[in-house]
Every structure is written in C-alpha cells, then in structure tokens.
Design a protein around this nucleic acid. Sequence first.
DNA 1: CAGTGGTCTAGACCACGAA
DNA 2: TCGTGGTCTAGACCACTGT
Lengths: 238, 238
Amino acid sequence: MASRRHAIADDLRSRIADGRIKPGGRLPSEAQLAAHYAVSTPPLRNALALLQAEGLVEKIHGKGNFARQPLRRTTYVGGGRTPARTPLPVSIRTTWLRARGHLNALLGVPPGSPVTEFFCVSHDGKSPHSLARIYVPRDLAPAAAPDASPWPQEVASLLAGPLPQLTKVQENVHVRLPTPSEAATLRISSTLAVLAITRVATDITGRVVEVALLALPGDRAEAVFTTEHTTTERRQEG
Amino acid sequence: MASRRHAIADDLRSRIADGRIKPGGRLPSEAQLAAHYAVSTPPLRNALALLQAEGLVEKIHGKGNFARQPLRRTTYVGGGRTPARTPLPVSIRTTWLRARGHLNALLGVPPGSPVTEFFCVSHDGKSPHSLARIYVPRDLAPAAAPDASPWPQEVASLLAGPLPQLTKVQENVHVRLPTPSEAATLRISSTLAVLAITRVATDITGRVVEVALLALPGDRAEAVFTTEHTTTERRQEG
DNA sequence: CAGTGGTCTAGACCACGAA
DNA sequence: TCGTGGTCTAGACCACTGT
C-alpha cells in the first residue's frame, strides 16, 4: 500500500474531479477531514500537500483549503525578455543598490557597481502569483525614481524602451523550496517547491544587460522553451 | 523566529560548509540529532528535508543521512535531442506499445498507433540519477528488438542514427512531486520535487518525431536553455 | 472572539540495509 | 539481528482570518 496519504489524496482528487467538491469551493476543515478518514493530522496534511503540489488545492491560512479553478497554470515563455503579454498585473518596487555576491558574477561587473533592482510581484486576482527580481546596470536602467510607489503595470512596458538589443538569453532552471521571505510574499507554504529561473540577457557586445531571478510557485506555473533549428546541425556519433 | 527547522537546518548547513561534517560523510542518526537539538522527530526531519531539497544532504533509507559532495548538479541542456555529452551512463529498456491517453495528443497520432518506448535511467555511480521515457513512432524507431536487456550506453548514440532532422524542439518545464513509482526507481523521497520536462521534437514536415518525458530530481539536476536572437526583433509597446 | 491552518511533543510501529 | 529512516497516533499550543 502506498501510504495512507495517497489513499486520502486519491479520494479527494476524485471528489474534486467529479464535482462533488466544486471548483473554488472550500473543503471541510482539516479536523473534519481527519475525522472522516479516521487519521490524525499529519497524514491528512500530507495528503493535502500532495494535492497542493498538483495545483488542485490551495491552502489559505486562517480560512481553509480550497479546490482550484479548472487548474489554470500560467506559462512563462522563455527565450526573451519578460513578454508583454503577461496575463497578470504586476506590482513593481524600484530600488538602487550596489552589486555584491553572486550578482557580480552574473552581471559581469566589479563589486559595488551600481545597479537598479526591480522587485516585481505578479498578482492573480487578490493573491500574489509569482515573483521576480530583475537587476539592470544603473546606466542602462530607465530613469525612474527609486522607490516609486507600487506601480501596477506590466514589466515589459517599463523595460521595453531604452534598452539595447539583446542577442543572447540564457535561462537556468532549477527547483528549490522558497525562502521564508518568498513564502511569506507569495503566501505559499514553505514546503511547496518553486521553479527558479535565472535569466541572463546579453547584448550584441557581450555585455550583460539584465539578470532576472524568477520564482514561480510550482503549483501554478510552468515554463516553455522553444528552439528552432534553422541550420542543419551535425549529428555527433559515439 | 522562522520555525525551529530553519534554525536546525542553518546549523547543519554551516557544519557542512565549514567541513565539520565532511563531504560524503554520514550525519549522526536522526535520533541522535533530535536529542542534540532537543526537538522531536518531525522538526528534525523537516530540517533535513530543507537540506535535502538544497542538495546538501542525501537520505538513504536503512543507512542514514549523508552530506553531499561539493554539490555537483548535473545540467540538462535544452534545445535539442538528449545531448551525447551526457556525463552519466544510462540504462535503457525498450518496449513496444500503442499510444493512448496524453501520448496521442503529444505525438499527434491516432489512438492505438504503434510507438516504441525507451525507458531510460541515468546513473551517478551506483545510485540512479534521473529518468526519461522517450516515445518514438514505431516506423521512426531504430530496429532494435524490444526488451533488449538493460543496455548501458548513452541515449544519443542509440537515437542518433536514422532519425530525420528535427527543426523544432518545444520543452515544457514544470515542478511536481514524483509518482510513487518514480520515487522508488530514483530512490528519492516522495516529498522531493522533481523538474519535469516534456520535450516534443518536430521534423521539417511538422511531424512529431519524439516525445520525451523527463524527471530530474530537484536536488541534483538543473536545466539550461539558451536562445540566440539572430534577427532584430521588434519591441512591443504598451 | 471563534474557527482555521502551522508547528510541535512524545511515543509507537513498520520497512529497509548491512552484517 | 540490529540500527537506520518512514509513517503514524493523539494530543498541545501558536498564528492568522473573519466577526
């Protein structure tokens, strides 16, 4: 037997699938569910964690567990700057700071170089959806005042204007748990893995014009990368 | 305070970082650690789960918790067929089957179409590393006998030969928990998220020549995608 | 305030790995 | 067999959300 949490998760999954629990509706409280399945708290919460990771259930702290709408995942499109067709509104906080730590290596600038940080949170309705920290060398950043009040507009329209053409975008994708700060900002459980994307955009001279650190909660986001093979590529042999 | 597990994880992390726990070495048993930190099992295991998700600690069931070597992550390179320079040996099991379910849509073939499945497990030393299920329409697959005994060789050299040139590769990346079967095959905890990649390769006529379902454990793998912008692309405005 | 989820304690029993 | 991690019970207390 594949542990009790899977059995409970399977049952709840089918209840959501066939509509006995309506999309958007609240599940019974964890205490009630635990009583119904005759288990104690941990296995029940583990079952909910499975469904949460699948994106079928969303937990909200003092309120309850909710069945998700028809499992709408947003898709991050790789290969370029944050696309203008972001379907979600974004709040941006602009900060001036000096590069330190990993950022130096990523940006290819000496320590202490001035950079502009755009701290972006996209929203899906009232709740936060995903998070991006975008770093641009100060002299390349739009001349917006730092700490402008949260600015609900799309990222791309802010970043679209005076930037040089970029010729290469490298995106590194990995999985990690959110930092406590990220979990608080995104209002997700600290056990829900996020898709972390480090995007480095380089212009025609080889200079790094943008570094973006994205955190996309694994239950509500995915990323897609498309590669066109225009040239005939050689095939290597063993 | 950010919950007790983080405090414990921070302490263990620094112990690993400064070498008090040597790379590859075994940590004290969970009972001993729990006694040392004066906590009960759950928070201690939660702390280990954090380090495990970071790739710093590897759990092996009847043996113990082990500090990872200098955190060597393997990198999946997107944008093409599985690269020949896979650094890890791969075992392949070949099966003939007929497409059903999602596979039809992905392959763009009618239900029941014959396909060849390559079930691939890459190995890092003695332990399994990651997992791939590759589906190719039967008439495009190399004429290897199905169920050939596990064949330790690189994926690419098997798939390199008689396949048509592919012109488009679309890779969909998301995060999920492993299925119980995957967790068993990969010998990972069922709570450790995996990077799931669905790769669809299309040839010059638009026909799908390969569908690959990859599962890369999040603690030991990452993926990188590079996009070259050869043409000058228009910039969209709000 | 009441109801919810988040974290924790202290212990039990099962499953796996090596000798 | 023994020591290990994996799962579970049955509670307790804290933190967040709404009234």
